[in-house]
Design a protein around this nucleic acid. Structure first.
Length: 697
DNA sequence: TTTTGAAGTCTCTCC
DNA sequence: GACTTCAAAA
């Protein structure tokens, strides 16, 4: 390992030089130590709000100032959003040079490297990416091909198969052990699991398909199995920085090991108290064992919190103090003012909603912009009532996390057309596509796919398939459409948008036939077309959709003029790494947060606790946690039931809160016989909206 | 073999 | 309440 800064020639200052960064003055002592750490492994243990991002940004700046060429720095983050944000901040420090820094998610980076080096390790050049749903569908195809489809009713369904497979790949835990641990009832099928997985794997290779796990897996394999390629890939970067290290898994740790084989210049930042992705294989061990894994690693701990007021920290410190095994940190703040966070008891969901909206407007009156406020919850569907109310009261909001859009059947349908054009061996998409066609069912679809495979997926192989009479028309139309799109160029603006338009000429009728709620679905497709217009070509578009799904409803680009001042609604997971002046955490009900299905093991409960910790530590000045006492629960026979406050807010933790109990609900809410309350109408809003475009769905 | 309608199944987090 | 699976009809 070399720590000689002269390794790199002095940087050419082609860009207007910024002021030299005064690292000592702009960072506290611990941050400074981390940012200016010389070469070699570095672990930054950074509590919530301690300036983790800031430190990482300054470290990037420092490396560049030291003369490391920006393009030889790799910054791995958890979301695309945080990569962009960090690079933008780095640019403000050291100027445009920082644009050369490579930043992105593990999966995004893997994709980029595999497009470049994949062929050298035997990967198809035109590979396409399967999202989770696609992988599950392919798993189903494998299962059926092995005759495990219907013979045994008890055989696990495709989601379970995929989950086990994915866990195995990401954690290196043997399949048998996973089954014993998570699915004891399926232990007897261990051999069948292995057979399905073998077929699944072979099928993907054959068809040029990569799922999310494969992206990481092939990256690791390039580094571990093919020395010549490994040298090239690892040789691309001299410094690797990893954000949110607590949420990486064993496979990602292997990748990092391989990427650092020549220099060991690795910086990882994380907070074990915020580890919330065990469900997808992340292990807290990566961060706990980092000092052992990388001998001589320097550890820096950031403990001063700059985000939250002390009363909020008191509450969150108490909350997390109940957790086991962690790097001990005591977060403190010099922001001693501020009031205790609120713990709000609402009588029912509706009252909780009204409280949140009223309080938001109140804070807004106090000059807190909407974009400085967020409402957080455990799962996407929990904001439904709130969304209705916000829409009714004309408060603009963005919802993060619920990536329903790309998972919607009709969107996947349209994409399937594009995907078979892109990769004619994409069995999953062919299958989906064929089943859409009138007169073609499972058997015909399987035959068609088989016959195409027999003809080595040549372009005319679908045309040469002889369909049964009733499917003749649909077959012919599809053959013509695909052939046409393959050969002819057309469309003025975007090629992809044009292709979607052509596909829709055929598909929209099918949609009307097969689905209800046609209008919103059609407008989804309009949006898809708009998004497509922004991409240069089909391959880029499809990969981007899989790797960087639009993360909020506003990213979908409807309407045009997006509101500047917009409230954020977000799942606790998607809120990670962000902060707001005021944060509302709703549905702090046991069984909702923690979710009932996460109560299976202590580990899962602990993860839920950390998740709540993440949610509450997003707040700078105002924090309100609310829960409704009575929940209208359809599962328990359409009746109101009394609910309990989340177990994480025990007696001790509650002492850090001030209690707010809302008055009893209106009679209408209790008595079904009572006449419905007249809807509250916001005349001003109505007038304002009179000529405005219709609100987003 | 495909289609259709009805019963049945779960509900999450995300690249 | 939305989507899948199952059984019966075309």
């Amino acid at each position: 390992m070399s720590s000689d800064p002269r390794l790199y020639p002095p940087r050419e200052r082609t860009v207007e030089p910024k002021r030299p960064v005064d690292f000592a003055a702009e960072l506290n002592e611990a941050q400074h130590k981390a940012a200016t750490h010389p070469d070699g492994p570095l672990l930054i243990v950074a509590g919530a709000g301690t300036g983790k991002t800031r430190t990482l940004v300054y470290r990037v700046a420092h490396l560049i100032e030291r003369g490391v060429p920006p393009q030889r720095i790799l910054l791995l983050t958890f979301t695309r959003r945080s990569a962009q944000e960090m690079l933008a901040r780095a640019e403000r420090l050291v100027g445009q040079t920082s644009r050369g820094v490579h930043g992105g998610t593990f999966h995004g980076t893997a994709h980029r490297l595999l497009r470049r080096f994949g062929p050298e390790v035997g990967l198809a050049a035109d590979f396409t990416i399967l999202d989770q749903g696609d992988s599950e569908d392919l798993m189903q195809i494998s299962r059926a091909a092995l005759g495990l489809g219907d013979k045994t009713k008890r055989f696990p369904k495709k989601e379970t198969l995929h989950h086990v497979y994915s866990r195995h790949v990401n954690t290196d835990i043997p399949v048998g052990a996973i089954l014993r641990d998570e699915y004891p009832r399926f232990v007897e099928f261990e051999d069948d699991f292995a057979r399905v997985f073998a077929d699944f794997t072979a099928r993907k290779q054959d068809r040029g398909l990569l799922d999310y796990d494969d992206l990481l897996l092939y990256w690791a394999l390039m580094l571990e199995a093919v020395p010549a390629v490994a040298d090239k890939v690892a040789g691309l970067y001299d410094h690797i920085l990893v954000d949110e290290y607590q949420d990486t898994n064993v496979l990602q740790a292997r990748i990092l090991k391989g990427m650092c084989r020549m220099h060991r210049n690795i910086t990882v930042v994380g907070d074990d108290a915020q580890s919330i992705y065990a469900f997808r294989g992340a292990t807290i061990r990566n961060i706990l064992d980092f000092p052992r894994e990388y001998h001589g690693a320097k550890t820096v701990t950031l403990e001063e919190n700059y985000r939250s007021t002390q009363p909020i920290l008191d509450a969150t410190n108490l909350l997390i103090s109940r957790a086991e095994e962690r790097f001990s940190k005591d977060l403190y703040s010099k922001r001693t003012g501020g009031e205790k966070p609120w713990l709000v008891t609402a009588q029912d969901e509706n009252q909780q909603t009204r409280f949140v909206v009223d309080r938001i407007l109140e804070l807004h009156e106090e000059d807190i912009p909407l974009r400085e406020m967020a409402v957080l919850f455990r799962a996407g569907y929990m904001s439904a009532d709130l969304e209705i109310e916000l829409t009714a009261r004309n408060i603009p909001f963005d919802k993060w996390g619920g990536i329903k859009f790309l998972e919607a059947a009709h969107v996947k349908d349209v994409l399937a057309f594009l995907r078979v054009l892109e990769n004619p061996r994409d069995e999953v998409s062919w299958y989906r596509l064929l089943l859409l066609m009138p007169g073609i069912g499972e058997v015909t679809a399987r035959n068609a796919v088989q016959s195409m495979a027999d003809l080595a997926w040549s372009h005319d192989s679908f045309g040469r398939f002889t369909p049964p009479p009733r499917a003749k028309e649909a077959h012919g139309a599809l053959v013509r459409l695909l052939a046409d799109l393959r050969t002819r160029s057309g469309g003025d603006e975007s090629r992809v948008a044009y292709e979607i338009a052509r596909v829709r000429a055929m598909y929209d009728d099918i949609l009307r036939e097969r689905y209800d709620r046609v209008d919103p679905r059609l407008s989804d497709l309009d949006q898809l077309q708009t998004i497509a217009g922004g991409y240069p070509d089909r391959a880029t578009f499809l990969s981007a959709l899989a790797l960087e799904p639009p993360s909020s409803t506003s990213d979908l680009g409807f309407g045009g003029e997006s509101e500047d001042d917009t409230l954020v609604l977000s799942t606790a997971h998607s809120a990670k790494g962000r902060e707001w002046d005021a944060v509302f955490l709703i549905w702090a009900v046991d069984g909702w947060f923690p979710m009932a299905r996460a109560l299976g093991s202590d580990d899962e409960i602990e993860e839920e606790r950390r998740l709540m910790y993440v949610a509450m530590t997003r707040a700078r000045n105002h924090l309100a946690v609310s829960y409704p006492l009575n929940v209208y629960d359809t599962r328990r026979g359409a009746d109101y039931s009394m609910d309990q406050l989340s177990r994480f807010l025990d007696r001790g933790v509650r002492r850090a809160f001030q209690r707010v109990t809302l008055e009893t609900p209106t009679d209408a809410a209790i008595d079904p016989e009572a006449p419905a309350k007249a809807p509250e109408v916001d005349l001003k809003a109505l007038l304002k909206n009179r000529f405005a475009p219709p609100p987003a769905p």
